Simulated assay, not measured.
Amino acid sequence: MKGFRCPARHGYAVEVSPFLPGRLACATAQYYGIAGCGTLLVLEQREADILLLRSFDWNDGLFDVTWSESNEHVLVTGGGDGSLQIWDTANPKGPIQVLKEHTQEVYAVDWSQTRGENLVVSGSWDHTAKVWDLERCQSVCTLQGHEGVLYSTIWSPHTPSCLASASGDGTLRVWDVKTGLCRLAIPAHKAEILSCDWCKYDQNILVTGAVDCSLCVWDLRSVRQPLAQMLSHTYAIRRVKFSPFYKTVLASCSYDFTVRFWDYSRSPMLLDTLEHHSEFVCGLDFNLHVPNQVVDCSWDETIKIYTPPCLAALQELAS
């Protein structure tokens, strides 16, 4: 396991570059995001350690980060001041553009994987999601319908102009960006939902993670009840991610200081529990380039890169 420490900065989100296997970015906040500024860390994984390539400061906490799908140097972060910041790692002076329409914290950002589109979706505490065209540097659509804070907004990796959002109102919603309408609203939890993600192998499958300590897998073709429910966390689930290598494997991180790995097609579904942090674990991602490698970040000021033993075992079985 490799680690990196950034004193006085608490990790909120981490994402591996879609272009470079060793490059990752972490969105952080000072004073646990309650007050103070934020810092975007751009890091490089080396054989024995993690190197800080560049850091960018912002005047408010940074709560999420997403890499461009068309330019290996560009990233977008979401801030506590309601703005999105566009960064170029080749430009050390600061953001190359700031977009501000939200009236409260931006807690989620995600770059569309549809080729030829430079679209980013943002989710805010102002109960709205906005879709931004970064070539025009303006919003093109505002999605309204949630009755609570938006904690997660994720583009479908399968269907252009389709995205999902998860909210403090307990619902998971699927949106059609072309019409600006909600296609489906699922009362997924009787608690705030802090994260959602799409299955990389099936356009109808999503997972949600909530304050009720449960993960629910949903099939959009039949939403009366979840396809699977996973219980083991002891505090709120902050982020969920489907594996890019296995259809039914996913990871979750929590305010219980743990990262857990699951296979919802098996019994028991829980594959492993890792306890390598001493504070809330908020950020989590799989490395698309290195099978079964995971990166996470925590309020304990550390970023970790590792391969969970349970996923290494799955890889051995598959081979």
Rank of each mutant, 00 (worst) to 15 (best):
L317N: 06
L215M: 12
G36M: 05
M269N: 05
K100L: 14
A185D: 06
Y264G: 04
A318I: 07
I96C: 02
S124Y: 04
C310K: 05
E47C: 10
L270C: 15
G82F: 04
H10R: 11
H10K: 10
L288H: 10
C310R: 06
L24E: 04
D285G: 09
A29L: 01
S17I: 03
R266A: 14
E69G: 10
G148T: 11
G78K: 09
P244F: 02
D133G: 09
F245D: 14
R54K: 15
P187Y: 03
G36N: 10
P244K: 04
L274K: 01
A236E: 15
L270M: 13
G38C: 12
R173L: 05
G168R: 03
L134K: 14
I237P: 06
I86V: 15
S252K: 13
R266S: 14
V177H: 08
W198P: 11
T159L: 00
L172N: 01
P18L: 06
A108S: 15
F286L: 04
H233N: 12
L84G: 00
S298Y: 10
V106G: 14
V294S: 11
W132P: 02
N91C: 07
V14A: 13
I193R: 04
A185M: 10
E117M: 13
R224E: 15
L194M: 12
L184F: 00
V42G: 04
E279P: 00
C26Y: 02
C182V: 00
D176L: 09
Q30H: 13
Y151P: 02
L20D: 13
V131G: 02
S55K: 08
I96L: 07
R224F: 11
C297P: 07
S254R: 09
I154T: 12
D197N: 05
W198L: 13
V249K: 01
Y12R: 01
P7G: 01
F63K: 05
D212L: 09
W299P: 08
A35P: 03
N71T: 07
C137M: 15
V42I: 13
T159G: 00
K190H: 13
K190V: 13
F280Q: 13
C253R: 00
Y31K: 14
T103M: 12
D110S: 08
S265L: 00
F261E: 00
S139G: 08
F56S: 06
L314F: 04
E101F: 10
E72M: 10
H276Q: 12
I205L: 09
L184N: 03
V140D: 09
S252T: 10
R221D: 04
S232L: 05
L119E: 11
K247T: 05
T153A: 15
L24T: 01
W58M: 07
W67P: 05
T302L: 08
Q293V: 07
S161E: 15
L220T: 07
A25I: 04
E72Y: 03
S122A: 06
S167V: 01
S195M: 06
L75S: 08
R183T: 09
V106T: 11
R46E: 14
T159S: 01
C213A: 09
W175P: 02
D169K: 01
G22E: 10
V42F: 07
Y107D: 15
D300I: 08
A191P: 13
A228K: 06
P308Y: 03
